[in-house]
């Protein structure tokens, strides 16, 4: 299964959320890999705390692979190469957790390159043989990268894939997420041109809300009544907006609560961060855990 993580705008927490989902999915006993297709700034290594590839790898990164400058991309085994003590011991029930970093100094890749599409098809095809799940971070907005993976998946009809569209709970983000999916030259439009069935493609897209602050959250206890009333009104307005833009509850796969640890340091939240050092909220970890199950749960992906 291939999962593509995209967002309408930058700064949604797409990368940190998708890495955490992959991590949880590995803990659930699956062999997983994470492909850093955020070609403009390949920094997924930092989230997994693999210092050596924090800004991309020096040898055989995904940029080099897709440009045709190396035969096989570098694979980093997170369980053995992470600098974080907590990630370096692979729990007995966990599957493989592998990162395919971009190249250090790599930039966005240009579009319309047939060789690159072929290499991308080869990459997805080989990884699908080896891993239960491949999470591909496709960066934000309409991009050549999104076009590349739409093109590649259109040529791999028997490999299942799904899209997660990340957005924050704000007006701009809701409008942008909808536009990215349904707007002109959005995922559905471009996908159809590249050979996807738009209906089928739509059923493979779900939204994930990030940094969500619920009006009744514990953090808001100290607020004045006026502030709380205003928040409720805002939330109500956003719900209506989301509903109109078809980004509402039915198309939503899950939401991640606002957590200071994710705001200040984009990192993997381990159970130790929740239970021992208590720097992360238990709700956050369980939201990741829930999403890690839902991405492969067919009942959560039945046609809308």
């Amino acid at each position: 299964m291939l999962i593509f993580a995209i967002s309408g705008k930058g700064g949604t927490g797409r990368s940190v959320t998708s890495t955490n989902i992959v991590y949880r999915h590995a803990l659930q006993g699956n062999d997983v890999c994470y492909l850093d297709f955020d070609f403009g700034s390949p920094t997924a290594g930092a989230i997994f705390s693999v210092g050596a590839v924090a800004r991309g790898t020096r040898r055989h990164g995904l940029h080099e692979y897709l440009r045709g400058d190396c035969a096989e991309p570098h694979q980093v085994d997170v369980w053995s190469e992470s600098d974080r003590e907590g990630l370096r011991t692979r729990p007995p029930e966990a599957g493989r957790l592998v990162l395919l970093p971009g190249s250090e100094g790599g930039g966005e890749l240009s579009g319309g390159n047939e060789d690159m599409v072929r290499r991308c098809v080869q990459l997805f095809s080989r990884l699908n043989e080896e891993f239960d799940l491949c999470m591909v971070d496709v960066s934000a907005g309409r991009s050549y990268t999104a076009e590349l993976v739409l093109n590649a998946t259109a040529r791999l009809p028997s490999i299942p894939f799904r899209w997660l569209v990340f957005h924050r709970w704000t007006r701009q983000h809701i409008i942008a997420a909808d536009g990215l999916v349904r707007g002109d030259d959005g995922l559905l439009d471009a996908g159809a041109r590249l050979g996807h069935d738009p209906e089928a493609l739509r059923d493979r897209i779900r939204f994930v809300r990030t940094a969500v602050l619920e009006p009744d959250a514990a953090e808001l206890v100290g607020l004045r009544d006026e502030q709380r009333a205003w928040l409720f009104a805002c939330d109500q307005e956003l719900r209506e907006l989301a509903g109109r833009h078809k980004v509402g509850r039915t198309a939503m796969l899950g939401k991640i609560p606002l957590d200071p640890i994710l705001q200040w340091r984009e990192q993997i939240i381990s159970d130790e961060d929740v239970l021992a050092s208590k720097i992360a909220n238990a709700e956050t970890a369980s939201a990741f855990d829930e999403l890690a199950k839902k991405i492969v749960d067919d009942t959560a992906w039945e046609g809308l």
């Binding site: 403009g40 940029h63 440009r67 790599g106 930039g107 966005e108 890749l109 240009s110 390159n113 690159m116």
Partner: peptide
């Protein structure tokens, strides 16, 4: 001729 990578 040209570049396959932005700013490359």
């Amino acid at each position: 001729v040209g570049s396959v990578q932005a700013m490359g």
